[in-house]
Design a protein around this nucleic acid. Structure first.
Lengths: 200, 200
DNA sequence: GGCCTTACCGACAAAAATGTCAATAGAGCG
DNA sequence: CGCTCTATTGACATTTTTGTCGGTAAGGCC
């Protein structure tokens, strides 16, 4: 009498990767990027350690793939948000909110910080492409005067979203302010700046 | 014939801690906080692994002690800077510059990010105390109208300095802007805000 | 049905890192 | 000088984690 093994599931490479990355996202949200250990990821996805390595090469590969995936999803959401607003200020505000959401609430900033600290940041080229796409959208919709101003503005938005997403909650608590305060202030700053740029 | 051993150096507890933390600072600058391994720290300080543990209890203890030390040094520098400026805007600008320097150039943001990710952030109570001291200084020198405005302002400054210090360089490079650009913009935002608060 | 590609897996190897423990040796002090 | 305190140490145990390897089986294709 042979021991029962759970039947193997054979997925397409894309489905297998997606399955693993979805598990990663849950782990990232629950325990942070440092918990993206090979064994935990594999367990979360319901596959063996070796399977994860088969698809991503290394645990670092898993992490950068997760970052890329989150950035792609963010760009899609921003594109949708842009379509739902007629005015520049509304568009940018909605985009900024999506940005803060992806990096703050959904754990993107913590993952980005992890990549930055482990020297994997250079592989985040997905960000460059994403920014180019969003910038192209804005140039098309808003036809702003100055392209470097757009780039500077996006640099500010992204960096602030990352900083607030990673440190905002802890700092607010440590300094005795409400946890969401820093995000409000940051969004105010961003909207004030865009108003100033478009208005004057 | 006995094997030559290097003579032991016996330091006071304070000197021993200082020696170890100085080595940590060098490692932090050169390789980042994830390189603050027990063996490397001990080697950098020229002592045995067990010695480090004797003084700090654990490698996490070393890291939080280093953070505390950096924050103390920062507060001292800010106090000096405050004394060298007569006007509020000049004072705050100099303080912000010191803040960005400590967190950016000197590696404080990377260390803070590490503590945040590894769950050690709650032990960064040194920040709370530091902010209280600086806030007290400002209340005394500038007698600003609103204390919560001061707290909000410091929350913004600290969070931005952390965000820019950790992500600024990489993001600027990724988005095709000069590496120091984000810092300039951030300082502009801060000074504009303080001018607005004091001016009107 | 038979074959071939490759997604998948268990077992194992190997490295890296932290922390424990008992012993050693400076340095102050009577 | 001899005693005591404790900073210091080497050796070691343990844990954690990544990655390799040879074999297994699922599903497409002829």
């Amino acid at each position: 009498m042979s021991i029962e093994r759970p039947a193997r599931i054979r997925r397409s490479p894309e489905a297998a990767r997606e399955n693993i990355l979805a598990a990663c996202e849950a782990i990232l949200l629950e325990k942070g990027p440092q918990a993206l250990k090979l064994a935990d990821v594999a367990a979360g996805a319901g596959v063996a350690n070796a399977t994860v390595l088969h698809h991503f090469g290394s645990i670092d590969g898993v992490q950068t793939a997760l970052m890329t995936r989150m950035i792609r999803q963010l760009v899609q959401r921003i594109a949708v948000d842009f379509g739902q607003h007629q005015d520049t200020v509304g568009r940018v505000g909605a985009g900024a909110r999506a940005l803060f959401d992806a990096f703050g609430t959904r754990g993107g900033a913590r993952l980005a910080a992890w990549l930055e600290l482990t020297g994997e940041a250079r592989r985040m080229t997905a960000i460059r492409q994403a920014v180019q796409e969003v910038a192209a959208l804005r140039m098309q919709l808003d036809s702003p005067v100055d392209e470097t101003a757009v780039q500077d503005f996006m640099l500010v938005c992204v960096t602030m979203a990352l900083g607030v997403g990673l440190f905002g909650e802890t700092m607010a608590e440590l300094l005795g302010r409400p946890p969401e305060r820093i995000r409000e202030i940051a969004l105010d700053l961003i909207e004030a700046r865009i108003r100033q740029e478009t208005g004057g």
